[in-house]
């Protein structure tokens, strides 16, 4: 088994766990969002890795290419990136709204105290 050769898979898992840890452990909501971003991006890395073909070039028609990488995962991940960006946008918008409502983005502070009156 080629452990080193699969380094990008290792990296994907490590990145993902870092993101996951941030989501769970960080009380700051923005940090949670960052963690979530890492988590998702790690998944993209995984997708891009599985499209990889030995000696393959980017899947763009080019006269000198011997073989191309598999274009499908790349295309899929474009879609997933769009999804991720929208999730991120909604998440950050929520954080802004939470800050407005509670005056804080530290979840441990928010959960303990009653929210301010809604304007």
């Amino acid at each position: 088994m080629d452990w080193i050769g699969h380094y990008n898979y290792w990296i994907y898992v490590v990145l993902m766990m870092i993101g996951f840890y941030a989501v769970i452990a960080k009380p700051n909501l923005v940090k949670k969002v960052i963690g979530l971003g890492l988590f998702q991006t790690a998944a993209f890395l995984f997708y891009i890795s599985i499209g990889m073909v030995d000696d393959g070039t980017a899947p763009i028609v080019w006269g000198h290419a011997v073989r191309y990488s598999n274009p499908l995962p790349h295309v899929l991940i474009l879609t997933a990136i769009v999804v991720s960006v929208s999730t991120m946008a909604v998440a950050l918008a929520l954080v802004v709204a939470i800050h407005r409502a509670h005056g804080s983005i530290e979840s441990n502070l928010i959960d303990g105290s009653p929210p301010k009156k809604h304007e």
């Binding site: 996951f20 989501v23 909501l29 949670k32 979530l36 988590f39 998702q40 998944a43 999730t87 909604v90 998440a91 929520l94 954080v95 709204a97 939470i98 409502a101 509670h102 979840s107 928010i110 959960d111 929210p115 301010k116 809604h118």
Partner: peptide
């Protein structure tokens, strides 16, 4: 209610993890 925002945020985090 303002708690809706927190509820939504939590749902977002968990939902995104599930979807990922």
């Amino acid at each position: 209610q303002p708690q809706a925002l927190r509820a939504s945020f939590n749902y977002l985090v968990l939902g995104t993890i599930g979807a990922t």
